[in-house]
């Protein structure tokens, strides 16, 4: 537990000092409880999501960084993207089976921004309706089936 908090402190420091473009940690959210962060994202310029604002929620378990954080889109604006369900769940392999402890909040944010940026057509996943009805609250409980490497 202690090592998890230490590492989150370090990550927060780095993110505050030198945030990647279009990514900003909501300081207020972290100061309340260390294991839940809100991160503000902005769609990269020159992409379908240019100037759009999104919110990501990170939830860290006690095994972080050995276990991946729970990451979902939050709030009124959930991007319309073939890998993002309308309840905010994201189909991204590094959030479950391809997670590695060398990844961080920063690298996850960058992956998500780049996932949005490479999108060519704004649409929901084909199984959105049924997934949203049947899924668990925790996206990590979903057995994701990663099949599309293009976006």
């Amino acid at each position: 537990m202690a090592s998890m908090e230490k590492r989150l402190q370090k990550e927060l420091q780095a993110m505050t000092k030198d945030p990647p473009p279009g990514v900003q940690v909501d300081q207020e959210s972290c100061s309340r409880v260390m294991n839940e962060w809100i991160v503000d994202l902005e769609g990269a310029t020159g992409t379908l999501y240019e100037a759009e604002k999104f919110q990501l929620q990170f939830k860290f378990g006690s095994k972080y960084p050995f276990d991946s954080p729970q990451v979902t889109f939050l709030g009124p604006n959930i991007p319309i993207h073939p890998h993002v369900y309308s309840n905010g769940h994201i189909c991204l392999s590094i959030l479950t089976e391809d997670w590695s402890p060398a990844l961080s909040v920063q690298s996850v944010c960058l992956s998500i921004v780049s996932m949005l940026s490479s999108c060519t057509e704004k649409k929901r996943p084909p199984d959105n309706a049924i997934y949203v009805k049947t899924c668990s609250k925790n996206p990590k409980k979903t057995r994701w089936w990663y099949h599309d490497d293009t976006v």
Partner: peptide, 8 residues
């Protein structure tokens, strides 16, 4: 010389 896992 930071550890890639704990960042210390």
């Amino acid at each position: 010389y930071e550890c890639n896992i704990c960042l210390e």
